[in-house]
Amino acid sequence: MFDNLLRFRNFRYFWWFLVTVVVGCLLYASHSSTEPPNGGTWQGYVLGTWAALLIVLLALLGFRKRSYRSRLGTTQGWTSAHVYLGIALWFLATLHCAAQFGWNVHTLAYALMCLVILSGLFGVYTYLNYPRRMTANRTGSNRSELFAELYELNREGADLARHCAADIQTAVLSSIERTAVGGSIPAQLTGRDGSRFETLENGAKRNTDQEAVIEYVSSRIPKAEKRAEVAYLQDLLAILCRRQAILRRLRQDVRFQGWLKAWLYVHVPVTAATVAALAVHIVTTFIYW
């Protein structure tokens, strides 16, 4: 599906992109020598109008994607067109302004448009790469199943811990309580682990990737006073290690999904700002004609 985004109908929209860029370049090259290329020549007006219409068309994809009942083309087709024409838009807008930039509302519109296009390109990259990696990471399960498994391991771990000495109980139960998955925006996007646990001896400590608690329990096994406790500790250790593996998958899953969505938090609001800046650009151009 995601590969098909770019290969949709045998690269149909790639050809649209190519034709748009080539025609745009030819139009730019047709500037007469009487005036430096700029947005005010007839070629500039044509390129500008074309780019403005394209911005409106591309923004409409946002509505089309939410309108699942629409029969006006497929969502996949619209998305493919959105990607290729979005890149073509950058060429058209750059040719329109003839790469003349300044501290003004016109360059603001251009800069916002570039931000939208760049964030969109990142979105395409994530759509093409992350779903495959997410599937590989989940090894056939979905996220809820992973959480359910973690939940069961937590229960088992807590039960086992209660059969152990107070220090192990405190360490394991607190490590289960203080296990972090996701959380803040940076934590979701980097997969940073803010887990902690408590020990009777030293209070709260970092428990990144559950390493500290596993180390704590495993180092405790040789010091066990009863044989039965050794068996509990060994079972507990096995459960803690299984928890560690599942937590790694979950954090990775959260990270992938975060990046799959993060670009939209730039793409969507800045698209709105771009349409507004485009309107301001057009109006102010003709206020001071």
Partner: peptide, 21 residues
Amino acid sequence: FEAAFVTDLEQTWLGKRSPAW
């Protein structure tokens, strides 16, 4: 149990509609 974790950007302060406006 799963709901106790913040695992989606939508659960954070990030938004699309409000910044767009």
